[in-house]
């Protein structure tokens, strides 16, 4: 467990160091600070969305040491010393990631609220399984809910991002 101090109200506050998108951040957090709130409130990385705060919708998906997780179900102190990738860290400064490009090209984005989580789930899937079948793509994003697109263009975009021929 990380170092802590006790504030004037008797509440323990912990010192954590989390690498987010390649940058080390050292911050003081409460034991109940969620990773999603750490990212959004402490670091102003609001690309990670909150949709349900129960781990149901997948909007807050980030990569924790490369694995997709719901950041609303992870405490900031659990991520101490780990590497987090958020949507802000997917693209390099000048270029979009291939998955982002394909999401744009295939009309996979409508309201955009699920997009960050979808793209990160897709990123994790394609890292693990560079040539997934359509069923594997569907399973890979089944933890990310989308209310706008009916998923069809998202599935096509991910298939295309894996270099597989898709009819647009």
């Amino acid at each position: 467990m990380s170092n802590f101090i006790v504030d004037n109200n008797g509440i323990k506050r912990y010192l954590v160091t989390i690498n987010v998108n390649g940058i080390e951040y050292t911050k003081v957090v409460k034991a109940n600070t969620l990773l999603v709130n750490f990212l959004r409130e402490e670091l102003d990385l609001t690309g990670t969305k909150k949709g349900c705060e129960l781990g149901d919708c997948g909007s807050c998906t980030v990569l924790l040491d490369g694995k997709p997780v719901n950041s609303c179900l992870i405490l900031a102190i659990e991520a101490d010393g780990m590497k987090v990738t958020t949507i802000e860290g997917v693209a390099s400064t000048s270029n979009l990631d291939n998955i982002q490009e394909k999401f744009l090209e295939y009309g996979a984005i409508q309201c955009g609220y699920c997009s960050a989580g979808m793209i990160l789930s897709a990123k994790a899937l394609l890292t693990e399984n560079p040539k997934p079948t359509e069923e594997e793509v569907r399973a890979g994003i089944s933890g990310n809910l989308c209310r706008c697109t009916g998923y069809i263009n998202i599935i096509k975009a991910i298939m295309a991002a894996s270099g597989q021929e898709v009819l647009n």
Binding site: L45, T46, E88, V90, L96, Q100, F103, G112, S115
Partner: peptide, 10 residues
């Protein structure tokens, strides 16, 4: 989409 990039990048 005119708002596509802003949504895809967070």
């Amino acid at each position: 989409r005119i708002d596509g990039v802003s949504k895809a990048t967070g």
